[in-house]
Structure formats: structure tokens, C-alpha cells
Design a protein around this nucleic acid. Structure first.
Lengths: 246, 246
DNA sequence: CGTTGGGTTGATCGACCTCAATAAAAGTGG
DNA sequence: CCACTTTTATTGAGGTCGATCAACCCAACG
């Protein structure tokens, strides 16, 4: 391989897409990610500090309250982000999808834990390296801030869902929200893959597994959706949208 | 109006838009705000685009879904931030206190409504003016991003409260959280002024007025706190902290 | 005064939780 | 490939926390 390859830190052995992920020019999520802020000739600065990482399902990217070493940009797969209370109650604060950035806060300690739901590929950056890069690339910082603000806005939407919506509305809002996010990545429309368990969905929506399951059954019974292996297929989008909007 | 109505420290009495607010050097919240990122000689750039604004209780700073004209830095008083569902259900997404910045997202449209709970003084900036300033002052942008990230983190904490805590825990977490924020402004310890109604607290915590009132009564009955005019006095901090931590 | 908005308290109800049983997948090792 | 365990999903029965409905108090205010 060329001298250009020597710029990359060593990719994980056995990681299928290791090369693809670090070669930003071929990256599938480049236009969705922080990286979109950079000009083509600036990518070398990113590639200099980037390490391609991959994780198997259940691998932890990082843990709540531990020092934050790295920040990540997800290139494939999905990641579960959650907080635990001392007594074991869990709140999932989000699911990261391809294009999503983890470590917006650039803080010393992780505010939540993150683990892989599916095989995950990510660009990994040293927190300090990335922070230094932000100081050199104001465009990148500006973009990161835009992303953080958008995340804040989504978090506030989630507050409405958690605080003021019924179980049925929660589940539907979750499905519609996930569908909209997936549509940005590949334009799938009615098929919504669900790499997370019902328990995960419950812990995201402030419900129990049983209630989530019951709502899925109810919506399926009413022909608003069909439950398929690994996900759902939305049938009556109009009806679902009206439930989520109310 | 009574002095008790104005719960939080007011640098300039009444509402003169002349001195205190626009003269950054004398501003009481400078070290807490975005502005802390600026060097003394840079404040003129801020003062150039700043307008001192004041609001009476119930005045709206801006409304959900309307175009965002300005961003604000609160210098005194407190502001209620909320989202409304079409059917009238309300979720309060936060209370802004002195030092807080409104308009982090710098987006075209407001994601929520904001109105004053008490008399409020604020520094008002045109959204475009402020955005342009951010391009000229990377330090300011960096600070704004730090603030946005911190807000995101608080929003995630609030998700845990909304999704996974009991009514009692919610109320206690709210009081402790507010106390901690007030402590950053003036180091009050046990007296927590509450400029918002029980209804507001309920709409922040995903509870009804009645439940909030009952929890206050319960905590008062158990001598964990005393209800005083315009607020509460925390008595058994150890016990309250342990409820909130659980 | 009467009115109005906020706060408290009680009685009842219901949405969601808890507990329990079963079924269906998905690993795991032989 | 098949037993065997483990994890996940579904469904039912019954209980509970917080919502709802309603009465009342109190302070502020015109």
C-alpha cells in the first residue's frame, strides 16, 4: 500500500471495514457527520488522528463515570446510550446510528455508558487530539456545535415524550422518530429494523417491557403495523403520525 | 411590587436599560455566562451588538415555532421554557436563571416558548449579529459549545428523572437541582425560592399539581423541609440527598 | 367586599406496573 | 444435527401509584 496508508494508525485486525472507515473519501456517512464541515484538503488532518475501531454486539465503547479517553463517529451499526441509577433502574438516553457523534461534551468523564447493539464500526479519536483539532478548525467546531444543539433539541423532544405522553403515544413516537432518522441514512420508508430489545425500548420511553410489548401487539392488532423478525413494518403511516402528533 | 417577588439578585434595580446590563464590566453574571470567554478588551465587540432588555412577569421572550430573532443572556430573574402539544398538554423543558443563555441552537425557529416568571433583565442580541460574532471569536464559540454540551447533559439527567423516578424522587431531585444551580449564583444554601407555581413544577416533572402539592406536604410533614412564602427551606439535606440519589 | 389564581386535601379511578406463566428464539456444547 | 440452557417476547390477572374530580382555603387585588 501507498505512503498514504502510513498516516493511519494501525487498524484493528479482523475488522472487515477497517480500511474503508478510515479512508474518509470513501466514507458512506461523511456527508451526515461532523466531517461534512471539512474541505477535501482538510481530511488529512482528521485522518492523522483517526483510528478505525470496531465493536461486537455488547462491547462497551465507554462507561458512565469513567474518564473519557476517546470520542467516536459511528460509521455503521447502532449503539445504546444509557444511564444507570444506583439501584439498577436504567434510562436509555439515546441510540446512536451511523453518522452520529459520541462525545459531544468533550468532558473529562463520561456522562453515560455506551455499548454496541450490533456490530459497529466507528472512527475513534483521542479526546485531546480532537479537541486540539477543533481549535485549529473553527468550521469543525461550528459544525460540532450545530450537532450538539440539535441533540439538545431532540433531548427536549424526548422530555415531552417522557413527561406528557401515554404509553401508546410513546411507542409510536419512538417508531416514527427512528424511521425519520433511518430515512436520513438510507431512504428506507416503512420497514423499521429494531436492533434493540423491548426492554431497551421500555428503558428509553419510561415504560416496562410488558407495556411496550402490549402496545406493539395492540398496534399490530389494529393493523397500524406488522411485527417482523428484527423489527416492524409500518402499515398505516397516517394513523401512526396522528397518534404521535396529538 | 414586593422585594420578595424578586427572588434572585438583581444587579440593577427597577429596569433601567442604561448602566448595569450593557456595561459588561460591572455585570454580576459575567463570570457565569458565555461572556466569560472574552478578554476584557473584547467586550466592546459584545457591547456593540447588545441591547439591554427587561420583561415583566408573564411577558414572552419568544414563542415556539416562530422565527428566532434574538438570543438572550439572562442577567436577573427567572424564565420558564416550555413546549406545548396541540391538545394543550405542556412540558416545561427548563427554567433559565441569571447567567443562562437562551438560543444555544441559533436555529431559524424557536423550539420552545419562553416567558418571564419574575421581572427579568437580559442582554439581547440579534441572532445574526451574534452568529457573526461567533465566527470572529472562536473562544466565544468554544464556550458556547461547552455550555450547550452541559445543557445536553442536564437534559439527559432530566430524562432519567422523567422516565425512571417516582413522584417523591422527582420533586426532591428538582429541589436539589435548583438549589445547586442557585448556589452557583449567590451562595444560598438551604433557602430555595420558587418563583414558579406548583403547576409549573408538575409540568417540568411530568406530574399533576395535586401530586406535587402532596409531595411537598409529605416532605414537610416528615420535617425534610419547610414550606415558606415563595419557596421552601431545606431542613434535612442528608435525607433529601439520599432520596434524590437512589 | 367579590373575584381570581394558586395551593391543599380527600375520594375515587384507571393507566401502567408487578408478578407469573408460557412461548419463541438464540445460543452452546456434544 | 439435536438436546439444553438462556434470553427475549407475549399474554393474563391483580395491584398500585399517580391522575382525576371535587371541595375548600387563602392571599392578592380591583
Amino acid at each position: 500500500m501507498s505512503a498514504a496508508m502510513t498516516m493511519f494508525r494501525e487498524p484493528d485486525a479482523g475488522c472487515p471495514r477497517a480500511n474503508g472507515a478510515s479512508r474518509c473519501s470513501h466514507c458512506g456517512v461523511r456527508k451526515l457527520s461532523v466531517c461534512a464541515a471539512l474541505e477535501p484538503d482538510e481530511f488529512c488532518a482528521l485522518e492523522d488522528i483517526l483510528r478505525s475501531a470496531c465493536f461486537a454486539p455488547r462491547d462497551h465503547l465507554f462507561n458512565q463515570d469513567e474518564p473519557s479517553e476517546s470520542v467516536y463517529n459511528i460509521t455503521s451499526g447502532s449503539v445504546r446510550l444509557y444511564k444507570l441509577l444506583p439501584d439498577g433502574r436504567r434510562q436509555i438516553v439515546g441510540f446512536a446510528l451511523p453518522g452520529d457523534f459520541l462525545g459531544l461534551a468533550m468532558s473529562e468523564k463520561n456522562a453515560f455508558s455506551a455499548d454496541a447493539l450490533t456490530p459497529v464500526n466507528a472512527c475513534q479519536f483521542g479526546r485531546r487530539d480532537f479537541s486540539a483539532l477543533l481549535d485549529r478548525k473553527p468550521h469543525l467546531l461550528r459544525r460540532l456545535h450545530a450537532i450538539a444543539s440539535h441533540e439538545l433539541s431532540l433531548a427536549q423532544d424526548q422530555m415531552v415524550i417522557l413527561g406528557r405522553r401515554t404509553a401508546e403515544e410513546k411507542v409510536v413516537a419512538f417508531l416514527i422518530g427512528l424511521r425519520d432518522r433511518l430515512a436520513r441514512i438510507d431512504s428506507s420508508t416503512v420497514h423499521v429494523p429494531l436492533p434493540m430489545t423491548r426492554q431497551d425500548i421500555g428503558d428509553f420511553l419510561g415504560l416496562t417491557v410488558e407495556t411496550v410489548s402490549r402496545m406493539f401487539s395492540k398496534l399490530a392488532r389494529e393493523k397500524a403495523l406488522v411485527i417482523v423478525p428484527d423489527g416492524v413494518r409500518l402499515l398505516d403511516l397516517k394513523r401512526l403520525a396522528s397518534i404521535a402528533a396529538t
